[in-house]
Amino acid sequence: MKTIPVATTINGDETEFLCHTDESLLDVLRDRLGLTGAKEGCGTGDCGACSVMMNGRLVCSCLVLGVETEGAEIETIEGMAKGDTLHPLQRVFLEEAALQCGICTPGILVAAKALLEKNPDPTDTEVRYWLAGNLCRCTGYDKIIKAVQKAAAEMRAA
């Protein structure tokens, strides 16, 4: 099978890669570009561990083909901190112990950031429904919801 050249922007950097037509964006990120922050928990769009932003929209990168990202803007967990300054969500997740094993954390952070960009002042229920596509098996979600709300409050005050 031949590979196809694709030109995208990833975390603000112009990025070109070659991929097969049946290769997922997740595989491209992980296997071709070395961006292993997005995780594969299921490969069927059920767990959200591979969440990334594509043209401002939250997607499961396991359900997007690499070739679909021609000309697209992709944001991954690797682009969330600015230099050595963590995004408030990242910092508050640490402060509030909103992770245990951490495998779902990149996806949840990307998803939570997307939520707060759309809705800076969500209710707990809104946070819970927004994050319903991101499975976490360790925490029971309690500290995750609290951390998202604390970060949201900080971001509103900033």
Binding site: T44, D46, T125, R128, N134, L135, R137, Y141
Partner: peptide
Amino acid sequence: AFLDYRIPVASDLPPI
């Protein structure tokens, strides 16, 4: 699959 082996999601739960 996680679609029909359904583990709890955030919206299923209250604070613990």
